[in-house]
Design a binder for these strands. Structure first.
Lengths: 232, 232
DNA sequence: CCGGGACCGTGACGCTTGTCACAACGCCGT
DNA sequence: ACGGCGTTGTGACAAGCGTCACGGTCCCGG
């Protein structure tokens, strides 16, 4: 197992900290390997500390009594989970569950709070991350509030294309490791609607090809543009 | 005009700071009186600094090309506006407009950033506020994603009852200074749907009386409960 | 090679809700 | 008192979408 320090240095939220601070944090971290479906916490639980995903994937979501789910975020390697309620003392606002076998680092709340108060760089990094998350949520809220399913899906594909796509002559290529069920919860709709929306995007030439999980789509800008115009 | 220091001390986000820091911030603030409909900023504008509402009301919202609007927050006296993009350097994610004549304090970005980096108390206060906002957004997202209009409205009324209601034997009394049009944008729907949802809540005994802007509603817990259960 | 389970596609149906249209009401200034 | 304007109630209608039902495909293990 490689040194925790090396891993943490790769984590964006900690990237700019100097070696001394990272070592300090790493010493307090509890690494943990878990399987798929491990529950990090549930909505309403008191906040125990900060998780960082080292490997694997964590889905953060809210669920309704009827069983429908709205995922708020999907975090992969190097991303922090649930940094939000560390500060206002409130409970976690959502559930968090691994969607594949994962390795996590856990930093107890007291340790983190101490680092936050003594090192302004830590504080800045956290606020930076919070700002990003907030920005993303506002965006998500807008699309859920007044875009139809096809447009929301186009937005989502644009995000994935941006973050993991490779541009070719015929469009942007990437692998979408999601079931339609998962996509549905990310845009707040039902699985069947995702299926129909995919076909709709294909007929409009926004999805150029789709073989299993391999997608070729139009440039993100074009996708977002189409979504914002209301799909025509 | 009373001293800006006195006003800032009443602002929750600054309340815990010591007198020296408040005086420093106040000295950098630019107070400003504006009419109704004054545009603080528009989505996409680069972030110039932090506004604090001293008096009046500011509505923060996103709008679609077709003209529909989703309000993200409504801020009253003592509340900061747009603290979010100060840090990640990005643009404002939404529009902000006064909905009545207001007095605002404006703190240029550089000043704020300096305070943030030198005083951990400022940083803690900001993160606290951000956390709260994020929590609220997650909640809002959930209701928009899988609650019907009546349930969303019940949630909204519960919030208002909590923050400005007075409890009596027959229910919680408060004045709702909003048009149905404004309510509609707060829960992401159309004005007519609000009208119908109000009637629906009344028949279920959740709104006990409604004369002009004076409302008498069931206890907030009961409202939220009904909304979460899916309205029965 | 077979069987089962997860995932995907698709048709039918009904409910919610956005939209349009219009009437009624209240408030305010002249 | 009157007229106008902003706000509200309500009816009709169509579109979008969630839900149910079912059949198809693919993969993997026995």
């Amino acid at each position: 197992m490689s040194s925790l320090v090396d891993v943490l240095r790769e984590v964006p939220i900690f990237a700019e900290l100097d070696a001394r601070v990272i070592a300090l944090l790493a010493a307090r971290c509890v690494p943990r390997a878990v399987g798929e479906g491990f529950v990090l916490f549930r909505a309403g639980d008191p906040c125990a500390g900060l998780y960082v995903v080292l490997e694997g994937r964590v889905r953060v979501f809210r669920s309704s009594p009827e069983g429908r789910e709205q995922t708020v975020a999907v975090e992969g390697p190097g991303r922090p989970v649930a940094e939000l309620p560390l500060f206002d003392g409130g409970p976690y606002p959502a559930h968090a569950v691994t969607t594949m076998p994962s390795r996590l680092a856990f930093l107890p709340r007291a340790e983190f709070e101490h680092a936050f108060r003594t090192d302004p760089e830590v504080a800045a990094a956290v606020v930076h991350a919070l700002g990003h998350r907030l920005r993303h949520l506002v965006q998500l809220l807008e699309t859920v509030a007044f875009r139809d399913v096809a447009a929301r899906l186009a937005m989502l594909l644009a995000d994935y294309a941006d973050q993991s796509g490779r541009s070719h002559a015929d469009g942007v290529h990437f692998a979408l490791e999601r079931t339609q069920e998962e996509l549905a919860t990310e845009i707040g709709t039902a699985r069947e609607s995702v299926s129909r929306a995919l076909k709709q995007l294909a007929t409009h030439g926004l999805i150029r090809s789709r073989k299993g999980s391999r997608f070729v789509v139009a440039p993100p800008a074009e996708l977002r543009d189409w979504a914002r115009r209301g799909g025509m």
